[in-house]
């Protein structure tokens, strides 16, 4: 399984990596500081390197989460394999609504992420793969 963490906060990224390594060793994690660098990787997508999960922060420099999603939208590529989770500390209801309405966003998580929640997410993704 392949997981991307898109967040400008290095502490958060390290934290999540630690949590993932606790759950399963066989998961590759890629980190991106903001939407634009993640977008650069998206453009190189092919069937092999598509991530299964993107954990996407909203407030980021250069390209924030929503900008990432709208750029993603414009790409017109089949991203069905990839499940995007918004991970934010925002409690702005607008963000929540927007996440709910977006067809690309699989779920909306509020920081910090509990390790059990991560486990559930991976189980879900795994089961959907089989």
């Amino acid at each position: 399984m392949k997981v991307w963490i898109v967040d400008d906060n290095a502490v958060f990224r390290t934290l999540v990596k630690m949590q993932i390594s606790k759950i399963e060793k066989n998961i590759t994690v890629e980190e991106f500081e903001h939407g634009k660098s993640a977008m650069g990787a998206v453009l190189k997508y092919d069937s092999d390197n598509q991530p299964d999960i993107i954990l996407l922060d909203i407030n980021m420099p250069v390209m924030n989460g929503w900008e990432f999603i709208s750029a993603y939208d414009k790409l017109d590529v089949n991203f069905d394999r990839t499940w995007i989770y918004i991970v934010t500390s925002s409690i702005d209801p607008k963000d929540f609504e927007r996440a709910r309405d977006s067809e690309y966003v699989h779920d909306f998580l509020v920081k910090p992420i509990e390790i059990d929640n991560l486990k559930k997410i991976f189980t879900k993704v795994n089961s959907s793969r089989t």
């Binding site: 934290l15 407030n59 500390s89 409690i91 910090p112």
Partner: peptide, 17 residues
């Protein structure tokens, strides 16, 4: 709220791990 929460969340996460 966002920024404070963000840092607070990090700290809580670190504590958990």
């Amino acid at each position: 709220s966002h920024n404070i929460r963000s840092h607070a969340a990090n700290i809580k996460g670190i504590a958990d791990i």
